[in-house]
Simulated scan of single mutants.
Amino acid sequence: MEHSVASQAHTQIRRYRTIRALTALLCAVALVCPSLKANVVSSKDYILWYRNYDSPAIRALVELSLRKTPEYGDFRVLRSEELSQGRVLRELSSNRSGLVDIANVATSAQREEFLTPIPIPIDGGLLGFRVCLVMPDKLDMFKGIHNLQDLVNSDIRIGQGSHWPDTSVLQANGIKVITHTRFEILFGMLKKNRFECFARGVSEVLYDMENQHDADLVIEPNLLLAYPMPSYLFVAPGDHETAHRLQLGMERAISDGSFAVFLKKYYGRAVEMLNLHRRSVVVLDNPYLTEESWHVGRRTLENLQRRLDILTR
């Protein structure tokens, strides 16, 4: 098992280096041979998974990354059909799908093996910090929960998507999990008391509340689940050009400060409104990451206080 994980990690490191090397090569060709660039560059449509397209933050980041790479040509970002997360990953892995080009999901060793990740956490690592959407009459169940053992010993069940990596992470930590394949159905299951907590990322939950327009749902005010869970953009394993463009665009955005502006604009409000500084942090282990992504996620977890301070300035 350790050998397998290490092998996957080395494979990913080689892949990341290949992406960076090819990105540099393409940029050099464009600079040295402008006439070649003029012949090659054209407008391209990128089909973004519908749940990412409907998220203002994720769509804004994809568009920011594409704008930072004008040498690749003009672009349009289009909304995909309403595919489940499992289906969208299968479509990407097929390398032949016309249904989706880009999807943002939480990473795992398996996903990095069959798809091409852009190994930069799109939300600064906030997806691994989760709060509970609950029904108001269930709030008392969360009183006195201060650590993992308290949560495991309680009657609290957590709702998650069948194909989400979080499901396996929660189960590996001894937490009771109820699942469904469709994201939208989980809200109805919560209201029907199929589970007590719909765990949502700090970077997602306010958007969920606004999108649902449901006065019956509230955000539990005292608990914060935290585990290493980087969220990456993924493309098909053979779609090297899109991978090169997204990675180069994100690196340029980090270098010129526009990525920090993006994080502050889209996630600063959530960090402040959710009072993350005052919550009891329940730290969970995530045994399903490659070595590279585990270190990315671990650094995010260790720098939680610093990230919260930056986003609320």
Rank of each mutant, 00 (worst) to 15 (best):
R307P: 02
S108M: 05
V235E: 03
M141G: 04
N275M: 03
L139T: 13
Y16F: 13
E2H: 08
R299P: 03
S35D: 08
R111H: 02
R111D: 09
A57K: 04
D140Y: 11
G249C: 00
A28R: 11
H244Q: 11
W294G: 04
W164L: 02
N222S: 07
D74I: 05
A30R: 11
N52C: 15
I156Q: 02
P221I: 01
D239Y: 09
H240K: 11
Q305C: 01
S7M: 10
F142S: 05
L151A: 08
H146N: 08
D256H: 03
P136H: 04
V131R: 01
R87Q: 14
A172D: 10
Q160H: 13
A260N: 14
T69K: 00
G124L: 06
K138S: 12
I178A: 09
S65T: 05
S203W: 01
S42A: 15
G268C: 10
Y53F: 15
G161K: 01
L186G: 06
M250Q: 14
Q212I: 08
K191M: 12
V41S: 15
E204V: 04
D309K: 11
S280R: 06
Q12G: 07
C197E: 03
R307E: 12
T18C: 07
N275Q: 13
L246N: 05
V281A: 01
L92H: 09
V169N: 09
R182K: 12
A9W: 10
S84N: 11
D155F: 02
